[in-house]
Design a protein around this nucleic acid. Structure first.
Lengths: 137, 137
DNA sequence: ACTGAAAGCGACCAGAT
DNA sequence: ATCTGGTCGCTTTCAGT
């Protein structure tokens, strides 16, 4: 249901999602129209969920990147899930197992910004913050 | 150094990094060639670091997604940083502050695969695993 | 499922404001 | 810094295998 060629296509797109069908085809190898057809199918099956972008947050003025885990107060899950979309600082969030219910990647300008953000979170639960020092992968 | 138009371009590309320059230009609004020129600059400055892809790992046969944090044994940092590229299961890894030194997002086929992966990690430190239940954002 | 051809559209490079 | 016009290459569709 997902063969070597599909996996290769996904690999190429992971490295450069703006690659043309011609370029992708060359690396398989496959004609541009066949590459296009397979990618169309991967999109339709929602195996490819989105074409996105990696940006340098620090260069955009957000020098502080952190992981925050929250132990939500009981009954706060629903309201927190609603609020999360209104926090532009939150780049990703997941429900997880363990003593903390939520894991987030958060991007902030500076310590003051972090403090203000944590002040909002403590309405929902007990946050634990880990600064990201560097990306290894 | 990075105006409203640049931010808007990045926003558009974050939603669909395969958008054509014409499409991007329409949403600013800006001519295609000006959009192209600005994007070129964002790439040159490495504010745009990569064009990437979001895939549904579960549909690719990797039904288990976890966060693993490791408290490395002393002196193991360098060898771990070297080994990390050889683990295809690791999608992202960061050095972080706190009692654990490393945070990773890891994608695995099943429990057995997780067990085998953890067995590799215990050469480097003490791992703590959190299953990802769902993605909120 | 893949290819190849043809038409239309976008990318890319000039040159001008 | 942005735009317009022109060329070339890519995308897209479709008929054929």
């Amino acid at each position: 249901m997902l063969d070597r060629i599909d996996r290769k296509i996904i690999e190429v797109l992971q490295q450069n999602s703006r690659a043309s069908f011609v370029e992708i085809g060359k690396q398989i190898p496959l004609s541009a129209s066949s590459a296009r057809e397979r990618i169309q199918k991967l999109e339709d099956l929602e195996i490819i969920k989105a074409y996105s972008l990696k940006v340098d947050h620090a260069k955009m003025g957000f020098g502080l990147e952190v992981f925050i885990m929250i132990k939500l107060f009981s009954g706060k899950l629903k309201s927190f899930m609603g609020a999360i979309d209104s926090f532009p600082e939150v780049k990703r969030a997941s429900r997880i197992t363990g003593s903390h219910n939520i894991h987030m990647k958060v991007v902030l300008k500076d310590q003051l910004h972090l403090q203000q953000f944590i002040d909002k979170l403590i309405n929902y639960g007990e946050p634990t913050t880990h600064l990201i020092l560097s990306e290894l992968k």
